[in-house]
């Protein structure tokens, strides 16, 4: 019993860390690129998007994990999509009701969470095979990893494009804002360079990190 408990704890720990770095959805698995690029012009929308994804991921993982024994193989994907779409609608309504300006900034990228590969991928790879606890931890860690990646990208872009972070000015007056960073070009190139940086770090580290 004891070893069993220990292994489950270590599994939990592993899943928790996996999402943040080793299997980071954005930097390592290259999932969910569309929101990653679209909403990261500033930190505020990026964080909101990250929180929405965490909420949807958590709910869908819980629901899928609870009914994993009842799922019929060929109706599986349909069930996942239905679950995800429902929770995305709820998240969207919530944003419209309580954060109307944020909802306008994010626009159609909130409903686009439905086709965000991260969520369906976690439902398929984790929640439909594991118990409630592992699924919840997996959702939280994957969500956190995604949010972290969004925020890193968004802070770089916001600082360079407006000289401010979280709308608070931090760069000296002499700094000329790079408007291009707020446009699609900035998103593509910043993410490309970030991925290159991540690649460089993992190549340099011995195999233990890359596993």
């Amino acid at each position: 019993m004891k070893t069993n408990a220990q292994t489950s704890v270590s599994i939990c720990k592993q899943t928790l860390l996996a999402g943040l770095w080793r299997e980071n959805p954005v930097f390592r698995l290259l999932l969910g690129m569309c929101p990653t690029l679209a909403v990261t012009a500033a930190v505020k929308p990026a964080l909101t998007m990250g929180l929405c994804v965490i909420f949807v991921l958590l709910c869908s993982n819980i629901v899928v994990s609870l009914m994993r024994h009842l799922l019929k193989p060929h109706l599986r994907i349909l069930m996942f999509t239905l679950t995800i779409a429902t929770f995305v609608t709820i998240a969207d309504l919530f944003l419209q009701a309580y954060f109307p300006t944020m909802s306008e900034t994010l626009g159609p990228y909130v409903p686009l969470i439905i086709v965000n590969c991260i969520i369906i991928c976690r439902a398929e790879a984790c929640a439909s095979k594991n118990g409630l606890a592992v699924s919840i931890i997996d959702a939280l860690s994957m969500g956190a990893g995604f949010t972290l990646a969004l925020c890193i990208l968004a802070s770089i872009r916001e600082i360079l494009s407006t000289g401010a972070l979280w709308e608070i000015k931090i760069m000296p007056d002499i700094f000329t804002p790079w408007t291009a960073m707020r446009m699609p070009v900035g998103a593509f190139i910043t993410l490309g360079l970030l991925l290159a940086l991540v690649n460089a770090i993992t190549v340099r580290k011995p195999k233990s990190a890359a596993q």
């Binding site: 490309g192 991925l195 690649n199 190549v203």
Partner: peptide
């Protein structure tokens, strides 16, 4: 090396 694959595609 570091740019191979996705990074160079994105750039």
């Amino acid at each position: 090396d570091a740019l191979k694959g996705a990074p160079i595609t994105l750039i």
